[in-house]
Nucleic acid binder design. Structure first.
Lengths: 349, 349
DNA sequence: CTCTCCTCCTTAATCAATTAAGACCTTAAT
DNA sequence: ATTAAGGTCTTAATTGATTAAGGAGGAGAG
């Protein structure tokens, strides 16, 4: 059975294709009788309705928002921060009645043309490392683009938080409590799978702009408090997982003198650091203070963290794209908030 | 500045449109020199690459999978079971290099044509109530469709678990422990927002087929154990939330005689029932046994539950659609597993 | 009777590509 | 010299719709 198109129906009834099209899209242009007959024949022939692709081509709109995320989709759907963001974005999409097309990044060697072939009206790019090839592909499409969290793309709107300030707030909190032996555990500095100590060059050359900025905030606050940043040990892990956090925790807690406070750039990592502390029978916050970031998995663990309005950020990104306001390179920074819970306290004197 | 198409470039260079197309899609059909010149001019004119919609129309494939979920997207991204499923589906999509188009259901009165207009190659329908209009719209598209969990759509492949058997296993567990005063808290029977006692008619006429089947399993097991189902109180809530579970818990625990075991058809609900038990200072599992369903939020709470292979189910659904095997109405039932944790014990004698 | 206005439908341009088949020219083999 | 084979580009059909503009016919007004 060949494909049924508008033309098939038109031929069958001896009317023009336009007439059949009107039967579907503009009932007022047709007499009721004919319209009914057309719909009847359409049904009889098993017509699937006006082809959305053809429609989309003619009308010049896709009815979908493209979403690009740095990690594999399987990871994204497990990351609390990403999920909060997706929720917000999905809400905006839902309100506008458009779909959300989640695109896989070409992973490994298999090259795929998902970005090039994505039938969308706009792109939302989330948390891509500097220089990631997918970003170039997105920009080549010349569609509206909004970037969330990272990287900074000149000429395109940006939504996120004031990362340096938020990082500084996290650091200032423990410094204000009196800590002087501060250490840092970070994920997402580079894309090369490295796990280990991060020297100054690696820190400052981090390809994830938000993480780089966050770290800059740590440093600024520490220096304002009179610490020498070179005395602040930084451990870097490749994946944002609890297990990786634990590893970083052990590395940092083995140091002599042992840090009394550890800053982490994600909550998941912080949970791992807490695991490490538990492994070593260290009392938190008595012997060790830990600060997370994002308030994504922090509540039950009683973790002090920086809360980001993930859902609002997602909604804002969506609305920016859907309102057509993405032409102006607006820069929307959302407020963050230091949430103090039971994982931080003054150091033992 | 007008839109740049293949034709624009062709005109500029005095070659045919086909030639330009080949420059992008089939380099071997062209001399290197010309190809280079074409790409140069394309760049110069700001050509965004072959229009994906036109491409899609001509090639007859969309490169995307449509996903339809019963709830609002904001809810879906917060539901642990849905997320596990999404993860699996996304993994399959990622492997095949196709996108995942998440479609909003027409919510409330605003009618939107997202299903009709979705540029996709196939649909995955998850957990829709019987008779939901969106399902009809999906079927009208005459594309491959796979249904997950519910409803049962004759003629289309189905992926899920053996719900009656799983429900029976949950019930048989507490019955085997010796419980006789069993009660049930359920969500997702109907779509009408009702919260309160569910009589036999409401139970059996439930529009969510999986939930209906699950409940049938409870009943069968109870009757096999010699209980009269009419003696088993059933409380129904409208939303799958912890708060709703707590409400159901209070309603059930106020009964005299008080149930010694409560079966719930989701983990989230079970957590709420545990909250209610805590409110009443009831010892779990000493004075009350609670069983969840899905193993989605159960681990930390020490909840006995039925584990469903959510991620595998998602992957299977995706692969079914992507392999083109969705033509046969295959019915794939995945194994479930009773996970016994600390929320169930024999009743106090 | 003529003019105007509606209603209902058709004509034809348009959206932006892909690709089989053919034309034309050069080179190599017989 | 003839034929075959390649390489490079063009022609034209095709994908499946939307919609402005126009035409035919009937109804009502003057």
């Amino acid at each position: 059975m060949a494909r049924v198109t508008l033309q098939t129906i038109a031929d069958r009834l001896g009317v023009s294709r336009a007439t059949v099209s009107y039967a579907f899209s503009r009932p007022d242009q047709l007499s009721d009788g004919l319209r009914r007959r057309i719909l009847e024949v359409a049904d009889e022939l098993g017509y699937a309705g006006p082809n959305p692709t053809a429609r989309s081509l003619r009308l010049g709109r896709a009815g979908a928002l493209g979403l690009l995320f740095s990690e594999t989709l399987a990871y994204a759907f497990a990351d609390p921060y990403a999920l909060g963001f997706f929720r917000g974005l999905a809400t905006a999409a839902e309100e506008a009645g458009v779909g959300l097309l989640i695109l896989p990044l070409p992973h490994g060697d298999r090259r795929s043309d998902t970005v090039r072939d994505a039938v969308v009206d706009a792109f939302c790019v989330v948390s891509l490392p500097d220089g990631h090839p997918a970003l170039a592909e997105v920009l080549a499409r010349k569609l509206p683009v909004v970037v969330v969290d990272e990287p900074y793309v000149p000429g395109h709107p940006f939504v996120g938080i004031d990362e340096p300030a938020a990082g500084a707030a996290a650091a200032a909190h423990v410094l204000g409590l009196g800590h002087r032996r501060v250490a840092v555990a970070m994920v997402g500095l580079h894309d090369d799978g490295h796990t280990g100590w991060a020297d100054r060059a690696r820190q400052e050359g981090a390809v994830f702009a938000a993480m780089r900025a966050r770290r800059g905030g740590y440093q600024a606050a520490c220096e304002r408090a009179g610490l020498d940043w070179d005395d602040v040990p930084c451990y870097e892990v490749a994946r944002n997982s609890r297990e990786a956090g634990r590893k970083a925790g052990h590395a940092l807690l083995r140091l002599d003198p042992r840090p009394t406070a550890i800053l982490t750039n994600t909550d998941v990592l912080a949970l791992g650091v807490l695991d490490a502390a538990a492994d070593l029978d260290l009392d938190v916050p008595g012997e060790l203070s830990v600060v997370g970031f994002s308030d994504s998995a922090a509540e039950e663990a009683g973790l002090t963290t920086i809360r980001q309005a993930k859902q609002e950020i997602g909604e804002a990104a969506g609305r920016l794209l859907l309102s057509g306001a993405a032409a102006r390179p607006e820069r929307r920074l959302f407020p963050y908030e230091l949430i103090v819970r039971a994982s931080t306290a003054p150091p033992a004197s």
